Deep mutational scan, measured.
Amino acid sequence: QTIHNGDQTYHYDNPEEAIKVAQKLAKIYNLTVTVKGNTVQVH
């Protein structure tokens, strides 16, 4: 599972963990989380 947060990319073995982290980032920075296959984008 990969999270793209602007210019930063994070890799997680656990998809659920990746989505949790993405949602935390989204709340902190007031962003949107988009899940596309194995990629979670925060923008």
Rank of each mutant, 00 (worst) to 15 (best):
T39Y: 05
N14Q: 04
Y29M: 04
T34R: 02
V40G: 00
G6F: 13
A26Q: 14
T9G: 03
Q23M: 09
K24E: 14
V21I: 09
Q8D: 06
Q8F: 14
K20S: 07
G37S: 02
L31A: 07
K20E: 10
Q41C: 15
Y12H: 02
K20H: 06
H11I: 14
Q23K: 10
A18D: 01
H11T: 14
K36W: 10
I19P: 00
L31Y: 07
Y10H: 04
Q8E: 08
T9L: 14
E16V: 06
A26M: 14
N14S: 15
Q41R: 12
H11S: 08
I19F: 12
K27L: 15
I19N: 09
L31W: 08
L25G: 01
A26H: 10
K27I: 13
Y29L: 07
T2D: 10
T32I: 12
G6N: 09
I3M: 10
K27E: 15
Q41P: 00
L31V: 09
H43E: 04
T39P: 00
V35A: 03
L25Q: 01
T32D: 05
I19C: 13
Q1Y: 06
T34M: 05
T34L: 05
N5A: 10
I3K: 08
N30R: 05
H4P: 10
T9P: 03
Y10G: 02
N30M: 06
G6P: 09
Y29V: 06
Y29A: 08
H11L: 07
K27C: 15
H11G: 03
N5M: 12
T32R: 07
V42P: 01
E17S: 05
Y12E: 01
I19Y: 11
I3A: 12
T39Q: 06
Y10E: 02
N30E: 05
A22C: 12
V21C: 14
H43L: 07
D7P: 14
K20L: 10
A22M: 03
V21E: 12
V35M: 02
V21Q: 11
E17F: 06
Y12N: 01
T32M: 08
T2R: 03
T2I: 11
I28E: 15
Y12D: 01
E16L: 08
N14V: 02
I28N: 09
E16D: 08
I19S: 07
I19G: 05
T34Q: 04
G6W: 14
L31F: 05
G6L: 12
K27S: 14
Y10D: 01
V33M: 02
E17Q: 12
A22E: 01
G6M: 11
V33F: 03
N14L: 04
I28K: 13
Q1H: 11
K24I: 15
T34D: 03
Q8A: 12
G6D: 08
N38P: 03
N30C: 14
T32Y: 07
L31N: 03
Q23R: 08
Y10T: 03
Q1D: 10
H11D: 05
A26I: 14
K36H: 13
T39L: 06
V21H: 09
I19R: 13
Q8G: 08
H11F: 12
N5D: 09
L25T: 01
T2H: 12
D13G: 08
N5E: 10
A26T: 11
N5R: 12
E17C: 12
V42I: 12
G37H: 03
T34Y: 05
Q41F: 15
I3H: 11
V33N: 00
T2E: 12
Q23F: 05
A26R: 14
Q41T: 15
A18W: 05
A18C: 09
K20I: 07
K20P: 01
Y12T: 03
T39C: 14
N38Y: 02
Q41D: 03
N14I: 03
T9H: 08
T34S: 08
K20T: 06
L25V: 02
K20F: 09
K24H: 14
Q23V: 08
H4W: 13
I3L: 12
G37I: 03
K27P: 05
Q8T: 13
T34A: 03
T32S: 09
G6A: 11
Y29T: 09
D7S: 13
D7A: 12
V35W: 02
Q23G: 04
Q8N: 08
V40W: 01
E16T: 07
A26S: 11
Y12C: 15
A26K: 13
V42Y: 02
K27D: 14
N30A: 06
D13Y: 04
K36I: 14
I3Q: 11
A18M: 02
H43N: 04
D7T: 15
P15L: 08
V42D: 00
P15C: 13
